[in-house]
Amino acid sequence: MLRVVLTGSECTGKSTLAAALAKHYKVEYVPEYLREYFEMKNGILAVEDVIPIAQGQLQYEAEAAAKGYNPLICDTDIISSIVYSKHYFEEAPGWLDDKLNRLGPSLYLLCGIDIDWEADGQRDMPEKRNYMQGLFINELKSRGIPFHAIDGPLNERTLKSIRAIDEALDVVEKNFFN
């Protein structure tokens, strides 16, 4: 199974792209658990919420993986929990690193900030898009996680993503059968 993670700062079209990719590959995508958790907590989060949010995300992934989806398309992952925890709370629980290291290799698609920002009650930093995107890039690079930059309108993003996913699926298939 190939785990595909859409990542990047808020309002970069991750959910929209995840839906388009899921349709193309005829799978369901793993939604962002934070949205549900944010509503449950009435929008008030503390550092104590970081691990439950990551656990919820991992549970969503496990449920989708159990259905045999390949690729497993994830609207976000623990990298987002790490970046936002460091930003809002100036720390990230070590538990996140342990879980991330156990997930193994994944294909990361970094969604660009070249689309319009839209308010939705959860998003709160339109003026910090470049800064937050830099935090995502730095986190990926500092961990040695390769990623594909995905930008442009949705049709371009979808095509770029499909090419990257298909290449990765070919590698996974060759490694599995050799």
Rank of each mutant, 00 (worst) to 15 (best):
D114F: 08
Y33G: 00
G43W: 06
I145C: 09
E39M: 12
L110F: 14
L110C: 09
A119T: 12
L96D: 05
F136C: 05
L58G: 09
F89G: 04
E36R: 10
Q59A: 07
Y84K: 00
Y131Q: 09
K14G: 02
K67M: 04
V50P: 00
D120H: 07
D166L: 10
Q133F: 02
I113K: 11
K141W: 06
T16A: 10
A149N: 14
L103Y: 02
E10D: 08
M1L: 13
K99Y: 10
P153Y: 15
R3A: 12
E32Y: 05
R143V: 06
D166A: 10
H24I: 09
F136E: 03
T76K: 02
K141F: 05
A164K: 07
S106N: 05
G8N: 11
I53F: 02
L154T: 11
K23W: 03
G13E: 04
A65R: 13
P71E: 06
G144F: 02
E36Y: 08
L110R: 08
N175R: 12
P93A: 13
G94C: 07
L2Y: 07
D75Q: 11
R163N: 13
L17P: 01
F176M: 13
D77S: 03
K26A: 05
G112D: 15
E61L: 01
E10P: 04
K23E: 06
G144A: 02
G152D: 12
A54E: 00
Y131D: 12
L100V: 03
G56D: 09
K41T: 00
F136M: 06
K26W: 03
E28T: 11
S142W: 07
Q55F: 09
L17D: 01
I113W: 08
I137C: 10
D120I: 10
L34E: 01
E63Y: 05
P105R: 15
P126R: 14
A164D: 07
Q59G: 02
Y108C: 06
A168V: 01
E90C: 12
G68I: 07
A20K: 11
M125T: 14
K67G: 03
E156D: 14
V30A: 05
K86T: 03
L109T: 03
I115S: 01
I150N: 06
M40A: 15
D98P: 04
T158C: 07
I44C: 08
V50Y: 00
E63K: 11
P71G: 08
Y69G: 08
E173C: 04
A149K: 14
E32C: 04
A62E: 15
N42D: 13
A62M: 12
V27W: 02
A54C: 01
E91N: 14
G8F: 11
E28Q: 15
L135K: 14
S106W: 05
K160Q: 07
G68C: 07
E91K: 15
P52Q: 04
D97R: 09
I79M: 03
E48R: 01
